[in-house]
Nucleic acid binder design. Sequence first.
DNA 1: GGTCGTCTGTGCGCTGGTGCACAAATAGAA
DNA 2: TTCTATTTGTGCACCAGCGCACAGACGACC
Lengths: 266, 266
Amino acid sequence: MWAGTDKSNSDPRPHAAFGKQNFLKTRGFMALTNTNVGARENHLLRALPQGDYERLAPNLHLVSFSLGQVLYESGEAMHSVYFPTTSHISLLYTMIDGSTAEMGLVGKEGVVGIALFMGGETTPNRAMVQGGGGAYRMDAKAMLHEFNRGGDFQHLLLRYTQSLMTQISQTAVCNRLHSVEQRLCRWLLMTHDLAQSDELEMTHEFISNMLGVRREGVSVAAQRLQAAGLITYVRGHIQILNRKELLARVCECYQVVRSELDRLLG
Amino acid sequence: MWAGTDKSNSDPRPHAAFGKQNFLKTRGFMALTNTNVGARENHLLRALPQGDYERLAPNLHLVSFSLGQVLYESGEAMHSVYFPTTSHISLLYTMIDGSTAEMGLVGKEGVVGIALFMGGETTPNRAMVQGGGGAYRMDAKAMLHEFNRGGDFQHLLLRYTQSLMTQISQTAVCNRLHSVEQRLCRWLLMTHDLAQSDELEMTHEFISNMLGVRREGVSVAAQRLQAAGLITYVRGHIQILNRKELLARVCECYQVVRSELDRLLG
DNA sequence: GGTCGTCTGTGCGCTGGTGCACAAATAGAA
DNA sequence: TTCTATTTGTGCACCAGCGCACAGACGACC
């Protein structure tokens, strides 16, 4: 499906360097083809009228992201936007002391690089690949040209941006009011929605960086879920066994974000 | 300064009903005048080129907001945007169980009602007046017409939206990682930036609803700040005595949001 | 098969925040 | 002035999550 071989870091472990000291900075990606079959796996591109899509298509370039790859560094100028298809990307915030937390998660229903059309050029976030796979890259110039036509493309991107704001807001509230276990459920469900299988490739350590909690905290929460038969895991492989029950345990935040996404782009 | 007399609720206390059961739902506002002297106290309107501004001016109507007034209810259709001048407005999220938390704070540097031009029509947030004062109202239709011209007006609104996203993101992280005292400092500083004086009118109870913590938690944090001579307060009146020292105690979040706002709109 | 690095499990003590209960102080109204 | 409702202060017991330390389990590689 996706070429997972493009690791410009020599370390074979995807998020090994995700600690507080040194982060992965791999950026290479492979242009696989320019016949854009499949670009419409991305929901935003799919929702475009045929005419608009055909105008854009020549500017869409299929790329492949590998786990742990960093698309944008915080505060760094961006040059493209990405429309994920099978990949998904975390928007992360890193504090001065190195602790991190995830603000949002972008997959096939969205686009990475919002700051480009919002006019800010950069954001104080890092965008990091959390699930390897494909995406369509579009050059900033071409994107802006189409955006400034003011048609459906603009409307879709703005509506998506609003849904992302909802996601971030909900994260803010969720961080404040809900337990690690609830937040873990939410995070597993969101990731599961974007993944192509029931098998998720990530360590407790990695998840703890997303949720902004201790690794041990994730471990004990995960144990409870495993004991209850909702998931099972070993060394970086998590399998979702009972999605229904996860939905029963998760806080309202998951549903709020989903419904708002459906309302805005469904 | 501002007509604080328009209380359609009979209770003389501004946020008396802000508990978990019943919220203020006052919505009336007074159209004071239509000579738009002063509309440019709002930074977005000020930043507009003269020509654009003159085209808009007839659609700007000065209104006055009173403390506790609700501009939009969560999920409710909006019909106008508001450009605050001397007022400031909280964007609040309310959970199913009634607990609340503030996502963002909008004042003279911004606009309330982003969902209208983002295309979502509603948001899952409530917008509530946190500091009484003036604002300029603009009808949705007129606003959209100008927005869709795609010129400076659009660019300014989108850049502001991005800065608001930063604010919300930062709130998410801050909620996760920082103490009540730090968050109280941040909140006091942000509010102070928007207020016209060193005197802030709000109870600990009110602040606790903004920060999403217990009232007692706010009280003890406020005591420490008072003991250190940074603020002084009695029954709903807080006075900022030493802003400099507050800046020394606040977490990085305050500066991040400020700098990003300056970068995007400064 | 043995080694080594990584991942997960477990057990401390500690701290910040919670929920509750009630006392004290204050402003505003009668 | 007195009364009353609101606001703030204080003291619990309690719990989730933290930081630290170390043990055990697993997998990849020699």
